[in-house]
Nucleic acid binder design. Structure first.
Lengths: 160, 160
DNA sequence: TAAACGCGGATAAGTTATGTCCACGATTAG
DNA sequence: CTAATCGTGGACATAACTTATCCGCGTTTA
């Protein structure tokens, strides 16, 4: 049936952060969207979320745009994912153990439900993995995969 | 904005498996739904998915119902989650690196996108955590939390 | 033979995801 | 000063998904 899925905006946001980490000045939404071949108006929404989360700062006006607020090695992939997806855990316990003819006692319910504990632990493992990788790490990966001249060309294109 | 979330059916399915691990015979959907205070018709859908995934087997007819196909210590929480949520990863790479004015070269694209690799690694960590816990483990947790008589009462109620 | 049960398909309401569009204020180039 | 560029927030629209409900069918048993 339905699968647990991450918003598509996460992919956009991470790639945008990598580009921003290589830019020399503020980059407008228009440029980021054009560079990635994606919707400008929708990307704008996601960039605003990054802004609200404090990962990027915006400059209004004629030569405005976005820039990272911190060095790229201080922004983790988890930061970006949480900024887009929100802070709520993927699993929400509805306490069904308290339902039905044999509800769990209030005493037993002082601890979170065992199922919930397992799910939260798994999500912590997931978050830990995403916290281990920074935007700077991803930039290095791109350089390795696509060649050392890649970001030079990106900067040239951004200057156009 | 939107958050990555797991289907509510996962919670139901896990709790049902714990109950099934303690049952002495096949348990019908009706009983499982009543026990958990949840929708019978909708739960039926999820149980059918567990059946298709091979985690439970069904008996049709007058005294039918569901039972686990394997010992509870050979069914992991991950098995149940994947049965309900599907096998597809939460993150789907749309290869936006191939878009725009500076697309990644076909050579560079032999490897998966770096962003994708990070996301997949995180999901593997998540799966590994869920694979560490079995339905039998959860049953032990319930006994610890709610007392040693809990499942005795459950079996009594199921026999009603 | 009737009641209890699982199975699969059709259907539908509510929510979320994915965008689009516009009015507004800020900034800057000419 | 005026145009053009840019971010911001809100309203709006549509497709997809979640969360169910219901029905007819075949199976099994009291």
């Amino acid at each position: 049936m339905g699968d647990m899925k991450m918003s598509g905006g996460v992919e956009w946001a991470v790639h945008c952060c990598v580009v921003l980490s290589q830019a020399e000045g503020p980059v407008p939404t228009q440029r980021l969207a054009e560079f990635h071949g994606i919707s400008r108006t929708y990307l704008a929404k996601h960039l605003q979320q990054l802004s609200r989360a404090g990962l990027v700062s915006s400059t209004e006006g004629r030569v405005g745009g976005y820039r990272l607020t911190r060095p790229a090695d201080e922004i983790t992939v988890l930061d970006v994912v949480l900024a887009i997806e929100g802070l709520e855990p993927a699993f929400r316990c509805t306490e069904i153990r308290q339902n039905g003819p044999l509800p769990a006692s209030p005493t037993a319910c002082k601890r979170p439900c065992g199922v919930n504990r397992v799910m939260q632990a798994a999500e912590q493992a997931w978050r830990a993995a995403l916290r281990e990788v920074t935007i700077a790490d991803l930039a290095v990966t791109v350089t390795k995969d696509a060649g050392p001249q890649t970001f030079v060309r990106v900067r040239e294109w951004l200057a156009t």
